[in-house]
Simulated scan of single mutants.
Amino acid sequence: MQIVVFKLGEEHFAVETERVQSINDTMGITKVPKAPSYIKGLINLRGSIKSLVDINLLLNVTPGTEQNNIIILTVKDEEIGITVDEVEEVLDIDEKSIQRLDEEAAKEQPYIKGILNYDEKLLTIIDIDKLLK
């Protein structure tokens, strides 16, 4: 299993690479009036308009001072962008090394696939479909 590791504030998260379409630098964002608070706006990526989601709000994480990257993900046949502080690396991991949440925590946060202790960092692996349903 391959994952893309990214940083939000002081925390590290990861999504499966099979969901990632591209990683881009931050670009112009067009605000959308009356959009839900987690929608940052729209971006124009090579002539294709994509919704940009503020993943910090959905994960309840305080973002860093500067969000430098946008990850374009496929969620239910739609491409959306998420803003992250920084994309750090792509890792090949063994799924058996992922620590699953206990049942109670999994009910509270069903979008977390598990936790991975890697290189003295705790990576929270996100199920992007459950987070962005």
Rank of each mutant, 00 (worst) to 15 (best):
37 S>I: 10
27 M>W: 04
30 T>I: 12
6 F>G: 06
29 I>S: 03
88 E>G: 00
53 V>P: 04
111 Y>E: 11
77 D>M: 08
36 P>G: 02
98 I>Q: 01
61 V>H: 12
75 V>S: 04
49 I>Q: 04
60 N>P: 00
49 I>T: 15
51 S>T: 13
18 E>P: 00
99 Q>L: 13
89 E>T: 13
28 G>P: 03
59 L>P: 02
99 Q>H: 04
63 P>G: 09
47 G>S: 12
21 Q>S: 13
13 F>Q: 02
46 R>S: 10
95 E>L: 13
44 N>H: 09
97 S>P: 01
53 V>F: 05
101 L>S: 00
52 L>N: 10
26 T>I: 14
89 E>I: 10
18 E>W: 07
74 T>E: 15
72 I>A: 12
15 V>W: 00
33 P>E: 11
8 L>F: 05
78 E>V: 12
42 L>Y: 03
36 P>N: 04
67 Q>C: 08
17 T>I: 14
14 A>P: 02
52 L>E: 08
99 Q>T: 12
10 E>C: 01
17 T>N: 06
97 S>G: 00
104 E>Q: 12
25 D>I: 00
46 R>I: 03
77 D>N: 15
34 K>L: 12
51 S>H: 00
39 I>R: 06
31 K>S: 14
39 I>T: 11
112 I>V: 15
65 T>H: 08
66 E>Q: 12
59 L>N: 07
85 D>I: 01
106 A>P: 01
18 E>H: 14
88 E>T: 12
8 L>N: 02
64 G>S: 04
10 E>Y: 07
10 E>Q: 14
54 D>G: 09
34 K>D: 13
78 E>C: 03
55 I>L: 06
108 E>M: 14
98 I>S: 01
56 N>A: 15
45 L>V: 07
11 E>Q: 15
34 K>R: 13
14 A>D: 08
58 L>W: 06
75 V>C: 12
10 E>R: 13
7 K>L: 06
75 V>E: 07
90 V>I: 15
110 P>Q: 08
43 I>T: 03
100 R>N: 06
110 P>K: 11
85 D>L: 07
56 N>T: 14
73 L>I: 10
46 R>A: 07
91 L>N: 08
39 I>N: 00
10 E>P: 00
103 E>P: 06
34 K>Y: 13
28 G>R: 09
5 V>L: 04
93 I>K: 01
69 N>K: 14
11 E>V: 02
49 I>P: 04
110 P>Y: 09
76 K>S: 15
109 Q>S: 13
75 V>K: 04
65 T>P: 04
49 I>R: 06
104 E>N: 13
102 D>E: 13
31 K>D: 09
92 D>C: 01
19 R>D: 11
8 L>M: 13
21 Q>P: 00
95 E>Q: 13
5 V>F: 05
61 V>T: 08
25 D>G: 11
89 E>C: 10
63 P>A: 09
79 E>N: 15
113 K>S: 12
55 I>Y: 09
54 D>V: 00
42 L>G: 03
43 I>N: 02
100 R>I: 01
62 T>I: 15
33 P>V: 12
20 V>K: 09
30 T>M: 05
71 I>A: 04
53 V>L: 01
92 D>R: 04
111 Y>G: 03
